[in-house]
């Protein structure tokens, strides 16, 4: 955080309280949005992730003071962001060649498996 004078801290406390309210409302909105059909499950996932990203940004910027940090930390997080994004892009890219049937109808317990071989004649 850039300044730690009592005045600046008191000003920050007002921001903390505002973010607290935003996070509570954001959580309620997340739950309510999950009951709304946005057309497809993908659309619902995107809506939920947008809300989650907004909430996470509030925590990172205000509570973790990333809105006013030193260059060293921004550089560290820049590298982290690059590799994290790379991981996610590779994951989505690889999903064209994904492992199939990670969840199948006969999961839990593992019975009702593939049909047995036809009897030899």
């Amino acid at each position: 955080m850039s300044g730690h004078s009592p005045e600046e801290i008191k000003k920050s406390i007002r921001s903390y309280m505002m973010v607290f309210g935003v996070l509570i409302v954001g959580t309620i909105v997340t739950v309510l949005a999950s009951f709304v059909d946005f057309g497809s499950s993908t659309a619902n996932i995107i809506v939920a992730l947008i809300i989650a990203t907004f909430k996470a940004s509030c925590v990172a910027l205000i509570f973790m003071h990333l809105n006013a940090e030193k260059k060293t930390i921004y550089m560290t997080l820049g590298f982290t962001w690059f590799f994290f994004l790379g991981l996610m892009v590779l994951t989505i890219w690889a999903s064209e060649d994904k492992p199939n049937y990670t969840v199948a109808p006969n999961d839990t317990p593992a019975v009702m498996a593939a049909p047995s071989e036809p009897a030899a004649h």
Partner: peptide
């Protein structure tokens, strides 16, 4: 990442 791959790989 593992979660995403498991989820998109489900039937």
């Amino acid at each position: 990442s593992a979660y995403i791959l498991l989820r998109v790989g489900a039937m």
